[in-house]
């Protein structure tokens, strides 16, 4: 199936409230899914006979935010955080990109991580990928069995891939800058 057919299938199944957007002209065509329904959409993507997306290539977060006041006008995106899922089907040999967009902070309270339901119940590898996205980008995967830091130290403060992250000046007596 090509991206357009996959999009149509998803819209038929879930409607426009859950499938919130798409871009079929992009280099890798993507479909945007509302945060609340990502788990059920993922489950269908994996189990439906016409889709069979059994392989989660990649799961990562991205922070869309411009720190520099002068560049903000040219930035072209509303500040938000994305979770991107790249999927491939080994049996049907097609692929698709799924996106979930959430605000940078939950309820606009700085420091409160935005919620996205976990898909580790659908693909086992999502467990580690989500831990990494939590660690580096700062996304709270609701329902994850073990949402702890995976690459940074357990007591690390902040999420390094956030654009407004400030490198600590000191860590356990080790000077930073």
């Amino acid at each position: 199936m090509n991206a357009e057919e996959i999009l149509n299938l998803l819209v038929d199944e879930f409607g426009n409230e859950k499938i919130t957007g798409s871009n079929l002209e992009a280099i890798d065509p993507w479909v945007e899914v509302s945060a609340g329904s990502i788990e059920e959409v993922s489950r269908l993507l994996k189990t439906d006979d016409r889709l069979q997306f059994d392989h989660l290539n990649n799961l990562c977060g991205a922070d869309y935010f411009e720190v520099d006041e002068k560049k903000k006008a040219k930035f072209g995106h509303e500040p938000h955080v994305e979770v991107v899922y790249h999927l491939t089907s080994y049996s049907l040999r097609h692929k698709i990109t799924i996106k979930v967009c959430v605000p940078r902070w939950k309820d606009d309270k700085e420091g409160e991580l935005p919620d996205v339901p976990t898909v580790s119940t659908v693909w086992k590898i999502a467990d580690w990928h989500e831990r990494e996205a939590f660690d580096l980008v700062g996304i709270n995967f609701v329902g994850h069995p073990n949402l702890n830091r995976i690459l940074c130290a357990e007591d690390w403060v902040g999420h390094p891939l956030r654009k407004d992250y400030e490198f600590p000046l000191e860590y356990h007596g080790i000077r930073g800058k």
Partner: peptide
């Protein structure tokens, strides 16, 4: 994991 972590992705940005 993470003993060799240097956040290459942040450097890449």
């Amino acid at each position: 994991l993470g003993y060799l972590h240097r956040c290459a992705e942040k450097i890449g940005e």
